[in-house]
């Protein structure tokens, strides 16, 4: 599974960098927070809901062909799950994560004086170093991510822009013999260097 993740990431990276045109490279930095609603299950255990959140710092490279490549470092935390009627539940956890994403940004849609809206969709993987909260147990897990998003770009000066963005990430985590599907809603702010509208 790790090899698949690596291969997918390398494919996106190579396509983005190989086809980007010199001189129009654009970098974004951003900060985002997401609310998560993880659902964990295992082969012979029930599916139970947690509540969680993550905070991420992102660095994104936009190529000239609307294929962004994105690196994130973040912190994720989840509560213990709800308790089943049989008294089963899944532990709370928290972790430090690194995400690598790529995808496609559609053409900007001008919205008058507000700037422009950019819809996009990203996919990729993450690896997380974690512990079960209130225990001494350390573990790590990989995950797959699919993230539709929309960003509002506002020009703030020559060659730069900024604006909020909204994302609806969906993450599938492969955690210690369980699976966790974590849909979320994220809000972020990004500062774009070298913007061209």
């Amino acid at each position: 599974m790790l090899r698949t993740l690596t291969a997918i990431s390398l494919l996106f990276l190579s396509s983005a960098f190989a086809r980007a045109q010199p001189g129009v490279q654009q970098f974004n930095v951003d900060l985002a927070a997401s609310g998560l609603l993880p659902v964990t299950w295992a082969s012979d255990s029930p599916a139970l809901v947690h509540l969680g959140f993550d905070l991420k710092f992102g660095l994104e490279y936009d190529s000239a062909i609307s294929v962004p490549v994105r690196l994130e470092i973040g912190y994720i935390r989840s509560s213990a799950s709800r308790v089943s009627r049989l008294g089963e539940l899944y532990k709370a956890w928290e972790g430090l994560r690194v995400d690598l994403l790529s995808g496609y940004d559609f053409a900007p849609r001008p919205i008058g004086r507000w700037g422009s809206l950019v819809f996009g969709i990203l996919g990729g993987g993450a690896i997380t170093a974690a512990d079960y909260s209130s225990t001494a147990l350390a573990y790590a897990y990989p995950s797959l991510i699919l993230e539709p998003r929309v960003a509002l770009n506002q020009r703030v000066g020559k060659g730069s822009a900024q604006g909020p963005w909204l994302a609806a990430p969906m993450e599938l985590m492969f955690r210690a013999g369980t699976r966790t599907l974590a849909p979320g809603l994220g809000l972020g702010w990004r500062y774009r260097l070298g913007a061209a509208f």
Binding site: Y132, A140, T178
Partner: peptide, 21 residues
Amino acid sequence: AFATAVAHFGELLVSNAAASG
């Protein structure tokens, strides 16, 4: 536990992949 997770990250990823559930 968190420092341990970071220090043994690769080893833990391999162990995680082998977990049966």
